[in-house]
């Protein structure tokens, strides 16, 4: 009498089902897809994508850090995925790159998922070099679009972009206490009414347990 339960097409119950359930499943699937295709990406490129900012010295690096690898690439991808226009904020307006940097540094997100996000930088620049002989962040808008379209045509690449979008949405709609949604600009644009009370600094999620 039983039929196949396809993927956990779990209903979005409005009760105590964690709302992030679907996305968590999505992330896990992304990772699996990525691992399946990882073999076709040169290992050296993956390694080169590691965050090298920890070796930077001096006080000025803090302000310039988002201009350095890998953040310059993340920033370029985020601003292409979520561009500013006259009516609405773009990735820079919601502090998306800095927010992503904090996500990758904070607990609560799976370490392997973080690695997947970081590794994608090597991949995108590899494709960018092959197509246009330049790193992604140096390309013009049309070439950037060409690279992203190419990436999105593979399931691993689409999963990676989909994850970057997820953290753009977090930066857009998260409580400003986490460093995104600068001056509530995301809420204002979307006319999103947040709930009260909002979390104070000493009650951010990673300080609760």
């Amino acid at each position: 009498m039983r039929k196949e339960l396809t993927k956990r097409a779990l209903r979005q119950w409005d009760s105590s089902v964690p709302e992030g359930l679907q996305e968590r499943i999505e992330i896990k699937q992304s990772r699996r897809n990525f691992l399946k295709t990882a073999g076709i990406i040169p290992a050296a490129l993956i390694l080169s994508a590691c965050d090298n900012t920890s070796s930077s010295k001096g006080s000025s690096y803090k302000t310039n850090i988002l201009l350095q690898a890998p953040w310059n690439t993340f920033s370029a991808v985020q601003n292409h995925l979520f561009p500013k226009d006259n009516e609405s904020p773009g990735a820079d307006d919601i502090n998306a790159t800095s927010y992503l940097r904090s996500v990758l540094a904070l607990p609560g997100t799976d370490e392997e998922d973080k690695k997947f996000i970081r590794d994608g930088v090597g991949w995108i620049n590899d494709i960018s070099q092959k197509m246009f002989n330049k790193d992604f962040y140096l390309l013009n808008n049309q070439y950037k679009e060409d690279v992203l379209q190419r990436i999105a045509s593979s399931s691993a690449g689409e999963s990676w972009l989909s994850l970057l979008l997820l953290y753009i949405f977090e930066a857009l709609i998260v409580d400003p206490v986490y460093g995104g949604n600068t001056n509530k600009v995301g809420w204002q644009w979307l006319e999103h009414i947040p709930g009260f009370p909002m979390p104070p600094e000493n009650k951010r999620y990673y300080l609760l347990r």
Binding site: G108, E170, Y178, P194
Partner: peptide
């Protein structure tokens, strides 16, 4: 699990639903 009280509950989508805080 831990013992949260009213003083720990805020309308924080990350805490409630996007990170493993209550689970």
């Amino acid at each position: 699990g831990p013992w949260f009280t009213e003083d720990d509950f805020f309308k924080d989508e990350l805490a409630c639903c996007r990170r493993s805080v209550y689970t």
